[in-house]
Amino acid sequence: MAFSPLISSHCSSSSSTSRIFSPTKLRPILRSSSSSSSSLSTASNSVQFDLKTYWTALIAEINKKLEEAIPVKYPERIYEAMRYSVLDEAAKRAPPVMCIASIHLSIILSILMESCSICCLRFTRLRSSMMTSHAWTTLRRARGRPSNHTIYGVDMAILAGDALFPLGFQHIVTNTPPEVIPENRILRVIAEFARAVGSTGMAAGQFVDLRNGNGNGDRERVVEFVQEKKFGEMAECSAVCGGLLAGAADEEVARLRRYGRAVGVLYQVVDDVMESRRDGGEGVKNKKSFVRLYGLERAMERAEELREEAKRVLDGFVKVYGETKVAPLYSFVDYAVDRSFVVGDGEESNQGSSLKSSL
Rank of each mutant, 00 (worst) to 15 (best):
M1C: 11
F3P: 04
S4H: 00
I7M: 05
S8M: 14
S13M: 08
R27Q: 13
L30E: 12
R31K: 07
S33W: 09
S33F: 15
S33I: 10
S34V: 02
T42C: 04
T42S: 12
L51H: 06
K52Y: 01
Y54D: 08
Y54M: 05
I62E: 03
I62H: 06
N63C: 04
K64I: 01
K64N: 01
K65P: 12
E67P: 08
E67H: 12
E68T: 15
P71I: 13
V72I: 12
P75K: 04
R77P: 07
R83V: 05
V86P: 07
L87R: 00
D88H: 04
D88L: 00
D88V: 01
A91Q: 00
A94T: 08
P96E: 06
V97K: 03
V97G: 05
C99P: 15
C99N: 15
I100H: 03
S102I: 09
S106H: 01
I107T: 05
L109I: 10
S110G: 12
S110M: 11
S110Y: 10
E114W: 15
S115Y: 02
S117Y: 13
S117A: 15
I118P: 03
L121K: 00
L121F: 03
T124Y: 13
L126Y: 10
T132F: 14
H134E: 15
H134F: 14
W136L: 14
T138E: 08
R145H: 12
R145C: 15
H149M: 05
Y152L: 01
Y152S: 02
Y152C: 00
D155A: 12
D155H: 11
A157H: 01
I158V: 03
I158M: 04
A160G: 05
G161P: 02
F169T: 14
H171E: 12
N175L: 15
E179H: 10
E183F: 13
I186S: 11
V189N: 06
I190H: 11
R195Q: 14
V197W: 05
S199A: 09
A204Y: 09
G205I: 03
Q206S: 09
D209W: 02
N214H: 11
N216K: 10
Q227S: 10
G232S: 05
E233A: 13
M234D: 02
A239W: 00
V240D: 08
G242Q: 11
L245S: 08
L245F: 00
A246S: 11
A248S: 07
E251K: 10
E252V: 09
E252Q: 13
E252A: 15
E252K: 14
R255G: 09
R261N: 13
A262V: 05
V265C: 13
V269M: 00
V270R: 04
V273M: 05
V273S: 05
M274S: 12
R277S: 02
D279I: 10
G280W: 09
G281N: 04
G283M: 09
V284Q: 06
F290R: 13
R292A: 11
R292E: 03
E301W: 08
E301Y: 04
E309A: 14
E309T: 14
E309S: 09
K311P: 06
V313Y: 06
L314R: 02
G316E: 07
V318L: 00
K319E: 07
Y321I: 01
G322L: 00
G322R: 00
A327V: 09
P328V: 03
L329T: 08
F332Q: 02
V337D: 04
S340T: 07
V342I: 11
V343Y: 03
V343R: 08
E347G: 10
E348A: 05
S358C: 04
